[in-house]
Design a protein around this nucleic acid. Sequence first.
RNA 1: GCCCCCAUCGUCUAGCGGUCCAGGACGCCGCCCUUUCAAGGCGGUAGCACGGGUUCGAACCCCGUUGGGGGCACCA
Length: 494
Amino acid sequence: MTAPAGPVRTRFCPSPTGTVHVGVMRAALYNWAYARHTGGQFVVRIEDTDPARNTLESERHLLDCLRWLGLTWDEGPEVGGPHGPYRQSERSELYQDVAAKLLASGHAYESFSTNEEVDARRRAAGQDPKLGYDNADRFLTDAQKSAFRAEGREPVLRLRMPEEDLAWTDHVRGEVRFAAGAVPDFVLVRGNGTPLYTLVNPVDDALMGITDVLRGEDLLPSTPRQIALYRALTDIGVATGTPRFGHLPLVMGEGNKKLSKRDPQSNFDVYRDRGFLPAGLVNYLALLGWSIAEDRDIFSPAELAEAFDVDSVSANPARFDLKKAEAINATHLRALPVEEFLTAVTPYLVGAGLVADPPTAEQAATLGAIAPLAQERMIVLSDAVGLLGFLFTEDVEIDPAAAEKQLGAGAGEVLDAATAALQALPEWTTAAIETALKEALVEGLGRKPRQAFGPVRVAVSGRTVSPPLYESMELLGRERTLTRLAAARGTATG
RNA sequence: GCCCCCAUCGUCUAGCGGUCCAGGACGCCGCCCUUUCAAGGCGGUAGCACGGGUUCGAACCCCGUUGGGGGCACCA
């Protein structure tokens, strides 16, 4: 059992059905990283053989997610390549041809049994019907086949499984072995003549020269069937060998279950929408089953590609930990050059209606000034909306919880003193504001800084968390600052 | 039920027979810094599932137990 010769060729072959799953994107990432690491190629193929569930819209979305993450493909939809088409719905003739060859060579055979009949036979023999198909149609005579056809039955095509153990050396699990006879002859082509995933996936991998199949562990039990198919395909000259397999650990959710499509945490879009950085998400996703070094877990996509090796992927299932994902992303966010940060964050402010598209000169100036201060206080880009919103509106809306905390007893005194000090200020600069407020509140009222500045912050920004106060006030301007202090004074209870 | 996979701090992991009374990260808890929140600095908390072997020596190898997970379609 040898893999096709030549450079590594990996593939990502999603079925475009609805939402994009984070586990699926992690599989794409590993395939991409392994191809890049080895100097091989990364192929994308769309598995849309189920017209009832597949849509072009979700295909576009899938590709868009790949691009956004930075996982460029060397062959596939939208870029083409020598092994196209890369959409299974456009490859029907190929499958029909291979199916015919498999039948003619005797590797596959026509099977007429219905599920009910198989079940009945299993039960009659005192066996568990869960055992599945019993290989009963392997040696049907022509007369028997004609009789079934005369009844109006249309046969499925099944692969004849070999009478020997099927084993392979898995990239992440080492040797895996399934006993002879454990896997029944399985269906390759439906009764209506359309091919199934079981046929189409290995055929395309063979035709596209895929050398390494890296996929989720949930597909591990289907590997013996595929190995048997590959042998048959090699025998009839369709394949040049059996690829190496690597079964990646599953991505688990909160509980102890595979992160299901139903789970909101599994939806890739939510991370993108919240403003995770591609590099941040790549970094975190890569960590789900792999590590770059003993004492390091922050790295760029390029560094990942440089270092990634499937053979060192862990076999343990990995739980998706949002807190850690956020921490990793925050680190990437802070490391971003200010210009790039601005470019990335502006669409979120535009989307929230806080700044114009493009921002006005004044808005741009404010943004430029606050960006470095905001950057280290954010986890995801959308945090900017709540954190910076107060700078781009006339009247700030005060968060009730913040008011509760800071605008209660004693706040009136602070706001009055701050107002008096700021009104008299000859020049409106960060330094002047700082000096004036410290004199008025800390020295004048004898308050601890914590108590002195809390109410002022809430009055000005509407929240207990904001960019540094003096800078914020300078950017806001004297007029708006004083208006807000007055407004807060009106609601303060003491 | 059958087949297969997995088993180190709460979580992700390093460890591939001695250099491990087990290292890093997230989280959590302190302290420092400090105008809030962060960031940053320092420190702490917490783990080799269990039982047998093999070996001079086991987190690392073997077997079993237990626990967890995945798969058993004319879906992909």
